[in-house]
Design a protein around this nucleic acid. Structure first.
Lengths: 335, 335
DNA sequence: CTGTTAGCGCTTTCAG
DNA sequence: CTGAAAGCGCTAACAG
């Protein structure tokens, strides 16, 4: 039976003919309760449609089992979904629930969000961005255990988890080399964001490790979208340099590159192998031929962040941990 | 100054030399407080780094200012982001915050999520799905004001908000007709989901209203993804029927259709105009030429749902409201 | 094993 | 205008 007006532990107690202490004990699975009392309480709970008040419990125990989750732009990409999903699923496993605020990058709002969360006594805060970059989160975030996701603060004063873009760039290049390519083009994005620097570093390191000289004539720049990839690829092809493969900064640029390659009467992967980055499913899996790419570990970062907050944190030797998660290679048909 | 150990209203009261009642009054902006007392309290609050306990407040007032937000699949599409974003932003405007759970369609988890939310005394629940369909949400959801988003229950026993797919199908077709097309192909998705039925109905109605006979030879079926669109378009083109435009069930199918059209040596929009559905930005804006499409009002539905929960609900004449939101036409270069 | 009791921090009468 | 007091529903001693 469902009773709308507030049923309290006292109602249960009198109904079951026991004291409130006993009710509380069965509610919290305490060991020393007689089976009989337990049954009576259970029955009363069911009959009265009792629902514990988590506010009262929180007031008493000082625990909320709530984690704050702040994002900058939840919308623009499907990434946000994966991060959120990983974080939420993991929180749930631990019996925690997420309080969500999307700041859209508004600093005032971000501060207010942290304040609200602190008022609500969240047990930790996850501050997530949708691409790998440096941030300055509200200082008050330090009032509770916090972790930066897909971003880091310049002082590295807060723990963080980001994709290992350098290693990803290295692996992508190495994979191309392993398949026999030695003339590898690089479609780079023009904004010098963190990911670009790191991936490029990895790429050069792989080239060097395999005794291939880095050739500036093989890199072209463009916007990090299909148009930019299209333009950059045309640029590259227009130079008349020989190349058998191209590593694109991201899948969106690769999408544009496909168009340019096709216009030149070339075929992927027969004439030019293409590897992307991000594993933006919607694109990578849909292109013809489907695109091999390095996956950004969004879900994994969500999981990692929550685990970090909830598990015992090992004593840090030198500053908060700055975790780098691997970007796995996702093989499809473009190489 | 930030004091970590709990500072209570009593600390503020004694520090400011007033009673707790007065402190509470300034905290809640009550009218009858002397400027002097107010100033003293404010000062004490700042000095002690006081932070009100929302648990205590909730216990006392019975209000949490929290809304529950349950999604089935937050990840697979960027849609989820828009829905969530619209809901979150609107909630924030009303001084509410969202408690998020992603069920991944797991019924047990869904039930548990509702229970937790009710224990936490959410003031309303939004139950959102990522595509327009019929659902059976946990019955206990009715314990608080609730609304279904992008879905509806078969009995229409709960209020809901969905895209107006019928009208969208009508408009898309009409737009094609207005531009002079009379031989319009239809790339339909093979699963008979709600959106398919509705869009098709709209399409036929538009045709009829403009005196164009519906021709079965102009509709082809496929998976609702690029491969399906590709196959369906090839099918259509292979029939040798004349057509100058094609209305695709969604943008992903349109993406595949582009490939098929190109393979036939035809050009979009010169030879065949293409209109999609969904306005899946990542695809629609990236295709070459960019794709004109009907937008699914995800953000708007998120806004609508929260508003509905929070605003005074007009007395319903016949059952809970079943809102249909318009799918706006987004013009790009494919027609 | 169990009933009683004392608060958790806050809001809200109720008298001044 | 303001202090004192009474709980909101629950848990955690503390005596049995």
């Amino acid at each position: 039976m469902v009773n709308r007006s507030k049923v309290t532990i006292h109602d249960i107690a009198s109904r079951a003919g026991v004291g409130v202490g006993t009710v509380s004990r069965v509610l919290n699975d305490h060991p020393n309760v007689s089976p009989k009392a337990k049954a009576a309480v259970r029955a009363a709970i069911a009959e009265l449609g009792y629902r514990p008040s988590s506010a009262a419990k929180t007031l008493r125990t000082n625990r909320t089992h709530v984690l704050g989750f702040i994002t900058d732009t939840i919308a623009s990409t499907p990434y946000a979904g994966q991060i959120t999903r990983g974080a939420q699923a993991t929180a749930w496993q631990y019996g925690k629930i997420l309080l969500l605020v999307n700041s859209e990058g508004d600093v005032t709002l971000e501060n207010a969000a942290v304040e609200t969360m602190l008022d609500r006594q969240v047990e930790g805060i996850i501050y997530a961005t949708m691409y790998h970059r440096a941030v300055t989160p509200p200082a008050s975030i330090k009032a509770v255990p916090s972790v930066l996701l897909d971003c880091f603060d310049v002082e590295h004063a807060l723990p963080s988890v980001v994709p290992d873009d350098r290693r990803g760039g290295y692996r992508a290049t190495e994979i191309l080399i392993e398949r026999g390519h030695r003339r590898i083009g690089y479609l780079n994005q023009e904004d010098p964001i963190v990911a670009r620097t790191l991936r490029m570093e990895g790429c050069r390191a792989a080239l060097a490790d395999h005794g291939i000289a880095f050739d500036d004539a093989l890199v072209a720049y463009g916007n990090s979208d299909p148009d930019g990839g299209y333009a950059a690829m045309r640029d590259l092809l227009g130079r008349g340099v020989s190349l058998t493969a191209v590593f694109c900064f991201n899948d969106r640029m690769a999408m544009g590159a496909y168009d340019a390659i096709r216009e030149y009467g070339l075929k992927v992967p027969r004439d030019i192998a293409v590897i992307g980055y991000d594993n933006q499913e919607l694109i990578a899996a849909s292109l013809r031929p489907s695109l091999s790419t390095m996956e950004l570990p969004h879900y994994a970062m969500g999981v990692w962040a929550v685990r970090y907050l909830l598990e015992e944190q090992p004593p840090s030797t030198n500053g908060p941990i700055q975790a780098k998660l691997e970007c796995p290679f996702v093989e499809r048909q473009s190489l």
